[in-house]
Simulated assay, not measured.
Amino acid sequence: MRVTRIIADLPVADVQAAKGFYTGYLGLGTEEFDLGWVARYTSPDTGATLQLVSRDASAPEVPAISVSTDDVDAAYAEAQQLGYEIVHPLTTEPWGVRRFFVRAPDGTVINVVRHRD
């Protein structure tokens, strides 16, 4: 798999309640998107990025990180071939990403994703 970006997915009880700390105090002032249950904030100065996640809209678990790749279908096939547990099957989500969740051998759930161009 070719990884193009890794973003931490921080579990929070309420995205809107948590937003002020991360955008104000930490300076992650650029809101890339906000779907209510997940929002991504980036520093306009440094490019540092964090996603706040209160739940997942279609998957059974909240991932620890989101890993972007340029070929999510190949990454899915490789994960299956290697025998890794698929937590959420390869899916094209209504909000425009194609993704799956895989559990690393240490138990960490990872969102492997390809964003629309």
Rank of each mutant, 00 (worst) to 15 (best):
M1H: 08
V3G: 07
V3Y: 05
T4G: 07
T4Y: 00
I6N: 06
A8T: 12
D9H: 02
D9A: 10
D9R: 01
D9L: 07
L10T: 06
L10R: 01
L10K: 05
P11T: 02
P11E: 02
P11R: 14
V12G: 09
A13S: 14
A13V: 09
A13F: 03
D14Y: 12
D14E: 15
A17D: 13
A18G: 03
G20K: 03
G20I: 02
F21E: 07
F21Y: 10
F21Q: 05
Y22P: 10
G24S: 14
Y25N: 12
L28Y: 00
T30D: 10
E31T: 10
F33W: 02
F33P: 07
D34W: 04
L35D: 06
W37F: 14
W37R: 08
V38T: 13
Y41R: 03
P44S: 13
P44Y: 02
G47H: 01
L50F: 01
L52P: 11
L52H: 08
L52K: 04
V53S: 09
S54A: 14
D56I: 05
D56K: 05
D56S: 10
A57P: 05
A57H: 12
P60W: 03
E61N: 03
V62C: 09
V62L: 12
P63V: 05
A64F: 05
A64C: 06
A64E: 15
I65W: 06
S68A: 15
T69H: 02
T69Q: 06
T69S: 12
D70Y: 00
D70V: 11
D70H: 04
D71R: 04
D71M: 01
V72Q: 07
V72E: 08
D73G: 11
D73V: 13
A74F: 09
A74Q: 13
A77D: 15
E78F: 00
E78K: 07
E78G: 10
Q80C: 12
Q81F: 00
L82I: 06
G83P: 00
G83M: 03
E85H: 10
I86F: 00
I86D: 08
V87I: 11
H88V: 05
P89K: 05
P89I: 09
T91L: 10
E93G: 04
E93M: 13
V97Y: 13
V97S: 15
R99C: 08
F100I: 12
R103A: 09
R103I: 01
R103Q: 12
A104P: 02
P105N: 09
T108H: 04
T108P: 04
V109H: 07
I110C: 08
V112I: 07
V113M: 13
V113T: 13
H115N: 12
R116A: 15
R116I: 10
D117R: 10
D117G: 12
